[in-house]
Design a protein around this nucleic acid. Structure first.
Lengths: 119, 119
DNA sequence: CAGCATCCTTATCGATACTG
DNA sequence: CAGTATCGATAAGGATGCTG
């Protein structure tokens, strides 16, 4: 499955040395959940496409976020060394697992907002 | 169940006007997941007890966090107007639902860290 | 096209001191 | 006991300009 993905020290990302908090901290970074959502909805996307969907984001921050998600094995970065270069980002196995967990949070968020269909 | 809890605009907490991101942003605040974890493990706790478990936190930040969690209906604040005052915090229904979702993230975090028993 | 380097501004957090 | 008020440091994000 994703046995190829290397072990991760998520505590690194938490001031509390707590893996869950590390993961939540990564997710809470600017635009992060939106990036993941876009990639799930529309499949692999290029840097410029992503940026176009987030007009208010700076290239610096988008780059930082993508790097972090790549380092944590959530995204895959595929680069073609053409001129001009073409870089495509997509969800890895981890990224897809993560979406399952986010769906649960999403359901709660909607429920608490009083917006569920079934409530 | 928790039908008494008022609807929440979680988008307020997200720069992106996204409910999930709002919720994740709340959770990622300093010490937040730890506070929730403590309250689940040990039941209702007083302000001073919580603070004792987090020596590095300032009263200011702890107060801010507790207020936010109270406003979002995740914690309940019970005050006894005695002298000296006694204030007790506990998880609400929402707080307990939330833990279910956090458990899923927790499981992922541990799995990715290569620390699962079953992996 | 997909970024990196730099500067600057703001928001956040920690520390300290004080109070109902 | 359970906070509030104030101050200062730090770091994170936005804007701009440049490059392989």
């Amino acid at each position: 499955m994703n046995s190829a993905a290397p072990p991760l020290n998520l505590q690194t990302y938490s001031a509390m040395d707590c893996p869950v908090h590390g993961l939540v901290t990564i997710l809470s970074g600017p635009w992060t959940t939106y990036i993941l959502w876009l990639l799930r909805q529309r499949g692999p996307m290029r840097f410029g496409q992503l940026k176009k969907q987030m007009p208010a984001i700076s290239a610096k921050v988008l780059t930082e976020r993508l790097r972090l998600l790549e380092q944590t094995g959530i995204l895959d970065r595929h680069q073609e060394a053409t001129i001009p270069p073409k870089v495509t980002y997509s969800l890895t196995g981890r990224g897809q697992e993560l979406h399952g967990a986010l769906d649960a949070l999403d359901a709660l968020a909607l429920k608490w907002s009083g917006r569920t269909a079934w409530a």
